[in-house]
Design a binder for these strands. Structure first.
Lengths: 188, 188
DNA sequence: TACTGATTTTAACATTTGTAAAAGCGCGGG
DNA sequence: CCCGCGCTTTTACAAATGTTAAAATCAGTA
């Protein structure tokens, strides 16, 4: 369990009580059942989701096959950034994999927050930076490592992933088919 | 020629004269000769570079082969984000491909700017968002398209690229070897 | 315990892409 | 004008991964 406010406090410890209270207003807590689709491709994603407990993912279809692009574990953020920041329909799907406790934060509310509490711009900037770096990490996973190394690194990064995520999702996340992942796993 | 201040004005038209003047102070203009390495892997990247005129790239080595990760054409930003935002040594190289006019902006100066002109936090946020989206676009290039389509799309996105960038850099940018790119190009 | 459905592994084969090296092309300098 | 150098294409072969389908394993439950 990782509370949204602990997360905020880590990024911007100096935030005023008023700003924090305002964030409390707009960040609705919600319990989401397993296998819920929070977004379908073609829809506009007007929220981001902070995972306080549980697990979700972002995925897309390539030749009728699901490909997982992003996991959101406890303390992490999930959204369809291609839509969230542009207002255009997303090409991504968002799915909750386990019953989860999330904070839902809407586009409009964030704009309102920035306008009324300019100090929160800094929080916004740091949250985006953190996720930008996460995406860069993912690029580097492919840039510098073989499929086998990617598998090992993902296990290290998310120690509970084998217990919580089916292998075909891990396979597509590391950029191979499930058959290839099986071959990798067999080599031990 | 795309001036840094036009770019800023597009993102934050409401910025105060004082803030703009301060940015003018910290964003040094510099003429960079062709083939200049602005960063080597292992070094800490404490600047970003706005390309007012010319062209640069970010690349890395995979099995002793250069792989281009990012181009910066006029009006775009180049940096090694893995280092710029973290302070750790980068795994990327930055190279200027053509004699270029750039604006160099340092880490420390940006922090100073944010502190003294909080309104500039917004500019920072929007610049990061824009580049985050560019990285996502690049992920989607691979997610949804074949190598041949990636080649076509890159030509469309950067119409002058064939005249300005050798094919081996384009090949690695779209995730294939130069031999494969040659095969793709031959199919017309 | 045995059945059912979901998940994972295995097998056989096809295809793509990479590797290494040679050949071709184009342009500027001697 | 020709040579040489850098860039690009071509060739032949090897290796890795994908595809399809079947078999095996596992989990939950009747």
């Amino acid at each position: 369990m990782q509370s949204f406010f602990e997360y905020i406090d880590r990024l911007t410890p100096a935030l005023s009580k008023e700003a924090l209270a305002a964030i409390g207003e707009i960040a609705a807590r919600r319990t989401v059942p397993r296998r819920t689709l929070l977004l379908r491709a073609g829809e506009i994603c007007s929220n981001f989701y902070f995972i306080e407990k549980g697990l979700g993912r972002v995925f897309y279809y390539r030749n009728d096959q699901e490909v997982t692009a992003w996991f959101g574990f406890e303390g992490q953020v999930i959204s369809a950034i291609d839509s969230f920041f542009t207002g255009f329909p997303s090409e991504y799907w968002i799915e909750i994999l386990e019953e989860s406790e999330v904070r839902v934060v809407g586009n409009q509310d964030i704009e309102w927050l920035f306008r009324h509490y300019p100090e929160t711009e800094r929080l916004g900037r740091l949250m985006i930076t953190e996720n930008y770096l996460r995406l860069d990490e993912r690029m580097k996973l492919f840039a510098f490592h073989t499929a086998e190394q990617r598998y090992q690194l993902v296990l290290k990064q998310f120690p509970s992933i084998l217990q919580r995520v089916p292998l075909h999702m891990i396979a597509s996340y590391i950029g191979v088919t499930q058959v290839t992942l099986s071959r990798i796993r067999a080599e031990y």
